[in-house]
Design a protein around this nucleic acid. Sequence first.
DNA 1: CCATCGATGTCAGTGACTGTCATCAAGCTA
DNA 2: TAGCTTGATGACAGTCACTGACATCGATGG
Lengths: 188, 188
Amino acid sequence: MGRWEPNARGRLEQAAMELYTERGFEQTTVAEIAKRAGLTERTFFRHFADKREVLFSGSRTLQQHLEDAVAGAPDATAPIDAIAGALEAAAALLQERRDRARQRQAIIAAHAELRERELIKLARLAAALADALRRRGVTDPAADLAAEAGIAVFRIAFERWVSASAQSDFPQVIRESLEELKAVTAGR
Amino acid sequence: MGRWEPNARGRLEQAAMELYTERGFEQTTVAEIAKRAGLTERTFFRHFADKREVLFSGSRTLQQHLEDAVAGAPDATAPIDAIAGALEAAAALLQERRDRARQRQAIIAAHAELRERELIKLARLAAALADALRRRGVTDPAADLAAEAGIAVFRIAFERWVSASAQSDFPQVIRESLEELKAVTAGR
DNA sequence: CCATCGATGTCAGTGACTGTCATCAAGCTA
DNA sequence: TAGCTTGATGACAGTCACTGACATCGATGG
């Protein structure tokens, strides 16, 4: 057995989710999170750059999945369809953790600081998707536009899915939202 | 004459721009900004909610212009064209302050914290545009999608315009970017 | 058995931000 | 004119996010 309990990082994430839910983000101090996890404040900041970041550890994994999915699309796939396929696959993954996603989103929606962090994570996702498209030979500014449009669809579809009934199918909501976007940009 | 020099808020904005440019955002303390403006730190926080907000006072005006432009579009205008017209009008305004816009963007681009703030301002713009569309009778989710797509076009066009030569015409860049988006979403 | 390493603890410090009360010119009212 | 109120600012103490420097100590490898 090690000198310390294992999975310090996971315990900090768990404690933070609990406290942010129980009493809110602003009313929770980092010292309290650390204490609940059996650690000190200093250790919290060795695992997470700041108080917000503890909610966003999954974004790196998500980004990797999206990049891989774009890279793996058949050669002839149009850029927007490569993006759409990646988003649908990611949506299927998120759907397996619907309760957790909802809880997390409730915390984030309640605090502008956290919404800011979420937005920059999504912007980085968009940049990564655009890079993946460029690696497929898509030129600028089409690569950026397809990626940004895709992320916009994802955001709006995510909101609809999270606030819908439990039977709502996230990949399906993505497809519908993309169709709506196509109609809208076509001037309808 | 009043007890104090006039335009405290403007002096704080000016001092902040200067110091953020001279030595960087992180290396500037609020006390230093206040001192250069001939005020105290406490007064800074009476005018601006935090150290970042001092760079974003123009966003309220911009939002108002955009909303008015959408509201004023002819009845028959398609949602995406109402958005496009509003963005072009806003672009024409920004173009009159190109140097200031570039300086401000250089500061923001250099610091993730500031990019976060910029993103949430743009998200609020998108929400306001979507509301303006709904007031025109556009239904969901088309209103949100048209607004988000418009803001994505605006962001990408803004980057291109800021980093282009002085002769670059911002409204024209907006039009071109929107055409690119239409092509991309059509699957090309 | 010893040197090193890595995760954590301890502690002191900086700076963003807030609550509270004091100040004082300007304007309003009796 | 004297007094009252108002609004912008200053003064000051306090909390908390975050950082740098150094100490601790079990595990690991030679």
